[in-house]
């Protein structure tokens, strides 16, 4: 089971490896969410969803379902 952004804990970081889902919004990539970028989970909304992440200096919020489609590198040496 690959590790995804959805499994990060608050304050944890990782490196984006690939996108699992086929229908990931292209907007995510346009905002800088690309394989190789460092991502940090800044905050989880009160009801556990959505997630507030920072990728390459851009702060954005995505839903948990989307986060679960963004795979991270196994070695979190970010």
């Amino acid at each position: 089971m690959a590790k995804t952004i959805a499994q990060l804990k608050q304050g944890e970081s990782g490196i984006i490896k690939a996108f699992i889902g086929e229908e990931l919004p292209v907007k995510l990539m346009e905002m800088g969410c690309l394989p190789g970028s460092a991502v940090e989970l800044v905050q989880i909304a009160p009801l556990n969803d959505p997630l507030y992440i920072t990728v390459d200096g851009t702060h954005m919020a995505i839903r948990r379902v989307t986060a679960a489609e963004i795979e991270l590198e196994q070695n979190p040496q970010a």
Partner: peptide, 10 residues
């Protein structure tokens, strides 16, 4: 599909 992306500006 449940798409949702929003920038959290400074």
């Amino acid at each position: 599909k449940s798409l949702f992306v929003i920038e959290m500006p400074r």
